[in-house]
Amino acid sequence: MPDNVLTLHYDIEGNDFTSAGEASGDVKRKLRMLGISPNTIRKLAVAMYEGEINQVIHANGGHIDVEITPQLIKIVLSDEGPGIPDVEAAMSEGFSTATEEIHNMGFGAGMGLPNMKKYSDTFELETEVGKGTVITMTVNIE
């Protein structure tokens, strides 16, 4: 691996809403220290936070690997959760399978995956029901 790549790893606890967002917040702070532009940081932070929250809500937790190169930031979200049976539905705005309890916390708007796609420059989703989901996103550094 080249010297100018910074890698970070986070383990996300399932159903832990008190520390949800801490991984994304940590990446955001590190990017700011690296002098990355605010617009790039915001895109990355929104996309990653949605992925982190999805792992907390739907996947009983997961892992997030972050790679920062001079050109782009790559985020790999992997989980061993239930998988997504209907990807097309999950990718459409407003579609949600979250419970009422989750809705009461302000989640489950059905904007998670759409926001991840909207705020990333590349977005790939691999999922298998019963096995889990891997999402790979990149955000170009301006």
């Binding site: 809403f17 949800a20 967002g21 917040g25 915001r42 932070a45 929104v46 916390m105 989640f107």
Partner: peptide, 21 residues
């Protein structure tokens, strides 16, 4: 960025969303 976000939400996730956005 720079918006005044007006809401009735007041949980920990509200803070996280404020940070990210």
């Amino acid at each position: 960025p720079g918006d005044m976000w007006i809401t009735i939400m007041s949980n920990l996730n509200t803070v996280a969303v404020a940070v990210m956005s």
